[in-house]
Design a protein around this nucleic acid. Structure first.
Lengths: 99, 99
DNA sequence: TGCCTTGTTCGAATTTTGCCGAACAATATG
DNA sequence: CATATTGTTCGGCAAAATTCGAACAAGGCA
């Protein structure tokens, strides 16, 4: 599998990021990653099927919220905190601070 | 026209707020209100028909982002900044700070 | 090679969302 | 009362998002 395309911070779009965060499943993924730092997809799958989760990861990736690093057969995801904070200061922090 | 129902800050839902903000038209409304403080609906209508705007105002109202005060025949809208900031500290500020 | 694991892609069904004209409600004003 | 102003509500339609099974791709390992 070839590496993913990740958008550059300069091309992040606020509405895309907000839309990506405005979904319970994706918000859960983001919160989990904030706790554990890095995780592969399987770890983050709850009751939803793989294909649904794969879709959510793509939405998060395309908006710039997370990056996916391929390590063998696993895809390791982590938040792009610094880059996101550079482009949208305080946004991700505010979202993550909500109980 | 009877007064609107505005949700109490304790019942604000993050996903609702994010979804409300994740639309270009609504984001424009929010930004405009941040500049002028208070405005009636007509002032905020650009090229879209009234019915579309009315829908967007309702979404923003239901999520807790703005309040609508009825003054005669006009509906005056303003951001619920303090209440929003109490429930989701830094969120609206972060969104408004994006150029 | 054969098999298992991990995750993507495809296709289709369902749901949600946005859009807008037309009709309506409420208030103000002549 | 008649009319104009301000916005809402309704209904249908179009576009977009979500969901998920099934098939596929790629790597690791016996």
């Amino acid at each position: 599998m070839a590496a993913y395309d990740h958008p550059a911070p300069a091309t992040f779009e606020l509405t895309l990021v907000l839309r990506a965060l405005a979904d319970p499943a994706r918000l859960e993924i983001v919160r989990h990653l904030a706790r554990v730092g890095e995780a592969n997809c399987a770890t983050l799958i709850g009751t939803r099927p793989k294909s649904s989760m794969s879709h959510h990861f793509q939405v998060l990736r395309d908006s710039g919220i997370l990056r996916t690093r391929i390590e063998g057969v696993q895809h390791r995801n982590s938040l792009r905190r610094e880059e996101l904070d550079t482009r949208f200061p305080g946004l991700l922090t505010a979202v993550l601070n909500v109980p």
